[in-house]
Nucleic acid binder design. Structure first.
Lengths: 220, 220
DNA sequence: GTCTATAAACAGATAGAC
DNA sequence: GTCTATCTGTTTATAGAC
């Protein structure tokens, strides 16, 4: 696709931009700063991506391929037959396992930090980058989780209740990433490292187990 | 505190800045745009707040007083004696009522939109404004919720488990506000209005009830 | 208190040397 | 492909008229 000689520069620019856009926002990050962080010159942005906007698009595509490679390993893309054959208890175990791994990755992986901040910015101020990310990872991942959740709780995969329930589950995980600064202060932690992430993952596993259990017995 | 003659300009500047900082970010919002939106001139920002940074501080103080007035009405500041006398069932009812009202406010109130976006930006890129907001509303509110949750579930108010559990509860509510754009797309909604907020609130109420119930019976 | 005018720095984009 | 120099417009801050 690209000439190998310029791949290193492209990669460096994308990573610098991802960091800048994520922390300072798109308008708040100058192409000058991005070029400096990537150890190249301003003109190379126009050369490789056409414009600052083109660099943003490249960031979105990087996010999609990064998360895809992780999500596919955890979620394992399955066909209709595989879902139909899923046992209820197996689906439950799969879900708790998925959320535990997701929490670990989102909370502690350094690359996840880069990616999460960029995605968060796009959620507040959507651009065409959000379209790429939504279609590339958010929707397909959410759909797969809905199907698993439906098997685990005996609901319908695309019912309003199931889709909202999966968002609520995601919220429990993602808030610890989004509100990380708040959580760290309130918990009196020095940082949110692996030990702290494990405490959070344990809590989330408990919550998910309870919510699945509750789906069996209707409230009195 | 301030001369009444200039209060209108101050107020207009703060609201315009809150909107700008929330949507485009601090660096991405120019004082020119803020002044134009507030129907005044650029120099008045320096006059009233000293600098752009001073305006950011004023935004944080506005956020604190806005949320305070709402939170106090919902949470009702209580003394030690009132907490000690709280019945377990009363605490449970209070919690579900609080989260239902919180969800309604956060998801549908137009002023909450302004405030929420600003707070979210500060979480990703903390400045002294986050210090003001954290000390002014986040910590005190979280502490009060922890005490209620402890009474409802029979735990300890300041234990790690309780503090994390309350964050997870908050996450379920807040994610629907943070990821609003994503939720709307995935749900196929045209907007997130009162009808949609009620569907979300109903789901959250169910989840909270289940989690409280589960605190009684230890997992098999 | 409000506003215009302007200073000094910085933005994104691009032409053209190498 | 990489880089310097530069064009054009915008940024925050401020001086000073009213």
């Amino acid at each position: 696709m690209e000439r190998p000689a310029s791949d290193a520069t492209r990669q460096a620019l994308v990573e610098a931009a991802l960091d800048g856009f994520g922390v300072k926002g798109y308008e708040g990050t100058s192409t000058r700063n991005i070029a400096r962080a990537a150890k190249t010159n301003i003109a190379s942005i126009a050369y490789h991506f056409g414009s600052k906007e083109g660099l943003r698009r490249a960031c979105a595509e990087f996010v999609v391929s990064t998360i895809r490679s992780v999500a596919d390993a955890v979620l394992a893309p399955e066909d209709e037959a595989a879902f139909a054959a899923l046992d209820r208890d197996v689906a439950r175990q799969r879900i708790t396992a998925i959320f535990e791994r997701m929490a670990g990755f989102i909370l502690t992986n350094p690359r996840a930090n880069l990616v999460a901040r960029f995605m968060l910015r796009e959620m507040i101020q959507p651009s065409m980058a959000l379209d790429i990310i939504y279609g590339g990872i958010i929707e397909p991942t959410h759909k797969r989780l809905c199907r698993l959740w439906a098997v685990a709780t005996g609901g319908e995969a695309e019912s309003e209740a199931t889709r909202l329930a999966v968002f609520a589950l995601m919220g429990q995980v993602l808030y610890f990433r989004i509100g990380r600064e708040i959580v760290v202060r309130r918990m009196g932690w020095e940082q949110l490292g692996t030990a702290e992430a494990q405490a959070i993952a344990a809590l989330l596993k408990g919550n998910i187990d309870h919510l699945i259990e509750a789906s069996e017995e209707p409230m009195p």
